[in-house]
């Protein structure tokens, strides 16, 4: 690995790339390739991770969120070393004759060279367009230089579930959010399907009218202790119930037959026996997950479309600014996790 890289060299290589793409296209066409770019998307991964998975996610995102994609692969090393290569991702829309292409840059770096990266990345970010940083390697979050790199981005996406205990990471994320940083946590993004189902139930006015009488919230999950997702869901439900005037208590339901950290069931019940009883339960396997929604005696079933890096990131990229609902839930989740830890 070479020890340094020059942003000007990368930019020149990108320019050459467009020229060669133009030459490869059919000279009889009125125009060759179309460049599409709506943002700069920086992704941090471990060098040991198979980058083909990451590039597959980028490729899937490109039609909806065309970007200059920069993937930085880190290897744990004290030696300061950086190297790079540039290439493009093109696709031919169905029924069209012209390719649409996006720029891709792959940088390999050692942990020790993390502080050297911001001056490299800053000129590579596309002018006037948002920068999003997707951190897939939790280890990097604590390294020297990470926050300077994150400061280039308008939004940072990470997954709190990849860190140790939820109390510490939720507390840290809450602090960063309060300091003005725009963050997204994939553990929260995963909850959208659950939250949407709950919200949909209470679109029914007769159920909504009983919301203030909800006294018990039970959240079932796999494993012995709640994950950050469970804390988020509990915090959000309790916040919403508070605003409806309900005085509800939370009961954790550990040991459900789902993988550790995953959610299995949410129940909301009123105090009186003939009152409202809502339960959402996931069923199925890794291939196909369904949710059974029971409201009193009415039962319906819906498919939980599979979550993956593409669907989660796609959701976050469509929210460029602050997400007040997330930030409010994060604050309460952090407090709940800290209280339970102590």
């Amino acid at each position: 690995m070479s020890t340094t890289i020059q942003p000007e060299t990368i930019l020149r290589e990108l320019a050459d790339l467009w020229i060669s793409l133009g030459k490869e296209s059919d000279p009889n066409q009125a125009s060759g390739v179309l460049r599409a770019c709506a943002m700069t998307l920086i992704t941090l991964v471990e060098e040991s991770e198979d980058t083909s998975d990451v590039w597959s996610v980028m490729a899937a995102l490109m039609p909806e969120h065309p970007s200059r994609a920069i993937v930085i692969r880190f290897r744990p090393s004290a030696e300061r070393a950086l190297s790079s290569r540039v290439f493009s991702q093109c696709w031919m829309p169905f029924g069209q004759r012209r390719q649409i292409c996006c720029e891709q840059i792959e940088i390999t770096a050692s942990d020790a060279s993390l502080p050297d990266l911001p001056p490299v990345i800053l000129p590579l970010a596309v002018a006037d367009l948002p920068v999003v940083l997707w951190c897939r390697a939790a280890r990097l979050f604590g390294l020297k230089g990470f926050q300077q790199l994150a400061a280039i981005a308008n939004k940072v996406v990470l997954h709190s579930g990849a860190f140790g205990g939820p109390a510490d990471i939720l507390g840290r994320l809450d602090e960063l959010t309060r300091s003005g940083r725009i963050l997204a946590d994939v553990a929260w993004t995963r909850l959208t399907r659950w939250r949407e189902l709950i919200a949909q139930i209470f679109e029914n006015r007769s159920y909504l009218a009983q919301l203030g009488a909800v006294r018990r919230v039970r959240i079932g999950f796999g494993g012995a202790t709640p994950s950050s997702s469970a804390y988020y869901l509990a915090a959000w439900v309790l916040d919403c119930l508070d605003s409806a005037g309900a005085n509800a208590s939370l009961i954790w339901g550990p040991g459900e037959k789902v993988p550790e950290g995953e959610l299995a069931r949410v129940e909301l019940t009123t105090s009186d026996s003939g009152g409202l009883q809502v339960a959402i339960t996931v069923t199925g396997d890794a291939e196909r997950v369904c949710a059974d929604v029971r409201v009193n005696v009415l039962v319906s079933r819906t498919v939980f479309a599979p979550d993956n890096d593409y669907t989660l990131l796609r959701q976050e990229l469509s929210i460029p600014g602050r997400d007040p609902v997330f930030e409010k839930a994060l604050g309460r989740a952090a407090r709940m996790a800290a209280t339970e830890k102590s």
Binding site: S243, D323, V325
Partner: peptide, 20 residues
């Protein structure tokens, strides 16, 4: 109690559909 559904999150959820 407000008749607004406190669970709604317009930033992420699709539009509300009432029962009918």
């Amino acid at each position: 109690m407000s008749l607004e559904n406190p669970f709604q999150d317009p930033l992420r959820f699709e539009r509300r559909i009432p029962e009918c």
